[in-house]
């Protein structure tokens, strides 16, 4: 088991390096000279030799690969420089908003998992008409854009029923509506997958045997189908988490949830490249860790894979 984790970690290093290179390139190749931008932000019109001196100081006259290695050294310590807009270290800014985004995405994921198992399980086992209706509902939920759903939910729950408020102090009750918005679409998409998986299993011979033995639907679903589909579902959940991290930007901007969404939108409009870079790296890293955890969980839930790993 430990060996597997180590192998998996080692095989992840090229991917991580590639990811960091992509993140580096986005800033290194960005139009506009960072030195000029910095100076202009400070209100200084510099002489050409000053620029050259500053470029040398920041190492901008070195070849791209050297600059990448230099950058990587800093990135490993989570140093992404200072924000062009605010002048504060990028990491400080991100650390301020990251917990809100993570808690939003995580609670949305929990909601989506619960919703998907309910929808998918019901759709697969229900009768013809009910099942078709559930599948229709699933497709509808997948199709409703989250930003519109958010506005509709605000209209109903905030403006008409008054059950929630918009400008909150980011306490737990304020999390309900944004998390619900995010989890409805993701839950429906995952539910579609749960349905597909259960259907695929139900076409297998071992299910036919279980039916022939006279087992009930619940027993077959939990005892025979669930263990076989849990692995792929965990992987899908990890993937969905990536989607939720991205989707959080949309929902946060509508509900005023104090997450990274506001920060990154501002950074894009102000062309604040260090912030964009830090955001890309941290979100990538979060998603990457989620996938890693999912991979390990898949092994733990699959007896065949586990046994094979132990014998190796």
């Amino acid at each position: 088991m430990l060996r597997f984790i180590l192998i998996r970690l080692a095989s992840a290093i090229p991917t991580l390096l590639g990811m960091s290179f992509v993140a580096f390139l986005i800033v290194a190749l960005a139009p506009g000279d960072p030195v000029m931008m910095e100076l202009r932000a400070m209100g200084i019109m510099p002489e050409p030799e000053d620029i050259a001196a500053l470029q040398a100081e920041f190492g901008l006259d070195k070849p791209l690969l050297l600059r990448y290695l230099d950058w990587l050294g800093h990135a490993l310590r989570f140093e992404f420089g200072t924000s062009i807009a605010t002048g504060r270290p990028v990491m400080d800014e991100i650390a301020l908003y990251l917990p809100a985004t993570l808690s939003l995405a995580a609670s949305a994921l929990l909601g989506a998992i619960a919703l998907s198992l309910t929808l998918g399980g019901l759709a697969a086992t229900a009768g013809q008409f009910f099942g078709a209706g559930l599948r229709g509902l699933t497709i509808l939920l997948v199709s409703v854009p989250s930003f519109w759903l958010a506005l509709l939910l605000i209209y109903v729950f905030v403006l008409h029923l008054g059950w929630a408020r918009l400008v909150g102090d980011s306490s737990l009750p304020d999390l309900v509506l944004p998390a619900m918005t995010l989890s409805l679409a993701a839950g429906a998409a995952l539910g579609r997958m749960v349905y597909e998986r259960i259907r695929a299993e139900m076409s297998e011979d071992h299910i036919r045997l279980a039916i022939a033995k006279g087992l009930g639907p619940i027993q077959i679903l939990l005892g025979h189908i669930a263990p076989r589909i849990i692995g792929p579902l965990i992987t899908a959940w990890a993937n969905a988490f990536g989607g939720l991290l991205g989707g959080a930007v949309v929902v946060e901007s509508i509900f005023g949830w104090p997450g990274l969404g506001q920060l990154i939108l501002q950074a894009i409009s102000q062309r604040d490249f260090p912030v964009i870079q830090g955001y890309l790296v941290l979100m990538g890293l979060t998603f990457f860790l989620t996938s890693l955890l999912a991979d390990i969980a898949v092994i733990l839930t699959d007896p065949q894979l586990r046994r094979r790993l132990e014998h190796e």
Partner: peptide, 25 residues
């Protein structure tokens, strides 16, 4: 496939945001 994996390791919308930040909205 490794190259594709590197791109896929980023959440899709997050990467799209970064590219838009790079190009200007």
């Amino acid at each position: 496939m490794r190259l594709a994996d590197i791109i896929m390791a980023f959440p899709m919308l997050v990467l799209a945001l970064a590219v838009i930040g790079f190009l200007g909205a």
